[in-house]
């Protein structure tokens, strides 16, 4: 079975904010994240993230699966949907409050 596209995420060390990889740096919105179509490209970028861990920019980088529908990224796991948006019980908090990102869970 072909693997799903993947995204690389981490938390920023200084403030804990959720960040995503895009072209060699980190962005705060899932909509701006770079999507890796296959395992080799995803694994390569996970390895590249090591330099940012050593450089104290991020902690705990990992890959997660997404689906792309109508050009929109949707994580497979609810955990990543909530991480990308904020608590579903407080739409005024987290990234969703910036108007950038909101998902129906």
């Amino acid at each position: 079975m072909a693997s799903l596209p993947q995204i690389l995420t981490a938390n920023r060390l200084r403030d804990g904010d959720v960040v995503y990889w895009r072209g060699g740096s980190w962005v705060t919105s899932l909509a701006d994240a770079e999507v890796f179509p296959d395992d080799p490209s995803a694994e390569a970028v996970l390895k590249a993230a090591d330099a940012f861990v050593k450089g104290r920019e991020v902690v705990n980088p990992y890959l997660f699966d997404v689906r792309i529908a109508a050009g929109e990224i949707k994580p497979v796991k609810e955990r990543e949907i909530i991480r990308a948006a904020g608590p579903t019980v407080r739409p005024d908090l987290g990234k969703q409050s910036l108007g950038k990102w909101a998902y129906d869970v």
């Binding site: 938390n11 403030d15 804990g16 904010d17 959720v18 902690v59 705990n60 955990r79 909530i82 991480r83 904020g86 608590p87 987290g94």
Partner: peptide, 8 residues
């Protein structure tokens, strides 16, 4: 101090 889903 924990690191949770959205933040510390």
């Amino acid at each position: 101090l924990y690191l949770q889903l959205h933040a510390y």
